[in-house]
C-alpha cells in the first residue's frame, strides 16, 4: 500500500434486517391510517366533552364520515395487528429481543455511563422498546371497545367506558410524541445514516 496516501478506515454503513425494515414501513403506514380514521370516529362523539367537545380538523381525518372512518379503521386493524404479530414471532425466533431491544445494561448506561455516545444509544433503545407495550395497549383497548359484550372480561379490565375510551385515545398522542422523540434520538445515536438504514 502506498504510504503517502492517508489510510482511512472505511466506515461501514449500518445495515438493518430486511424483515425489520418491512415491519417498520408497514407499521408507519398502518399507524397513519389507524390514527386518521380513529380521529374521524372520535369526532362523532369526542371522548372529552361529548358532542359539545372539541373536534379534530378535517385535514387529519380519513374516511369522510363516521361509517367511512369505521371502514378504514376496521380494515387496517388487521394490517396493523398482524404486522405486530409476525414481527413478534420473528423477534422471538431470531432472539432479536436479546440484542436489539433495551436491556439492563442500557438502564445502567443511562444512569452511570460517562460515554455520551453509549448514553445516547441506551436512551434510544429504551425509548423504542417502551413503545411496544403502547402499540399492544392500542390493540387491547381497541378490542375491548369493538367487542365489549363478547370480550367483556377484557373491557372489564379497563373499568368504566370513559376510562376505556380515554386509554384507547391516549395511545394516539403517545405514538405521535414517540415519532418525534424516536426520530431525534435515532439521529443523535447514529446520525442520518442510521435513520436511512431503517428505511432503505
Amino acid at each position: 500500500m502506498d504510504a503517502s496516501v492517508p489510510t482511512r478506515r472505511k466506515t461501514k454503513s449500518p445495515q438493518q434486517a430486511f424483515l425489520a425494515k418491512t415491519f417498520h414501513w408497514v407499521n408507519i403506514v398502518a399507524l397513519v391510517l389507524m390514527i386518521s380514521s380513529g380521529l374521524q370516529i372520535y369526532n362523532a362523539n369526542p371522548v372529552f366533552g361529548g358532542r359539545g367537545g372539541w373536534h379534530f380538523p378535517d385535514l387529519v381525518l380519513l374516511g369522510g364520515w363516521l361509517a367511512g372512518g369505521r371502514d378504514w379503521h376496521f380494515a387496517i386493524m388487521w394490517v396493523y395487528s398482524l404486522n405486530l404479530f409476525w414481527y413478534g414471532i420473528y423477534v422471538f425466533v431470531t432472539r432479536r429481543w436479546q440484542h436489539r431491544f433495551a436491556s439492563s445494561s442500557d438502564l445502567k448506561a443511562v444512569k452511570a455511563s460517562q460515554n455520551i455516545k453509549r448514553k445516547n444509544y441506551a436512551w434510544h433503545r429504551l425509548v423504542y422498546t417502551a413503545i411496544v407495550p403502547i402499540l399492544l395497549l392500542a390493540i387491547a383497548s381497541g378490542l375491548a371497545m369493538y367487542k365489549p359484550a363478547q370480550l367483556h372480561w377484557l373491557s372489564g379490565l379497563f373499568g368504566n367506558w370513559q376510562t376505556l375510551r380515554t386509554v384507547h385515545f391516549i395511545t394516539v398522542p403517545i405514538v405521535v410524541g414517540f415519532t418525534f422523540v424516536h426520530s431525534v434520538m435515532a439521529l443523535r445515536a447514529g446520525t442520518i445514516r442510521l435513520v436511512k438504514s431503517m428505511f432503505f
Partner: peptide, 23 residues
Amino acid sequence: ILPQRSLSRRQLLQWSGLSGAGL
C-alpha cells in the same frame, strides 16, 4: 353523523394532500 357531501375546494386539497388519505 351523516356523510359529508359538500367540502370546499380548499378543504379537499388540504385533505387529499395532507391527511392519511393523501398518502
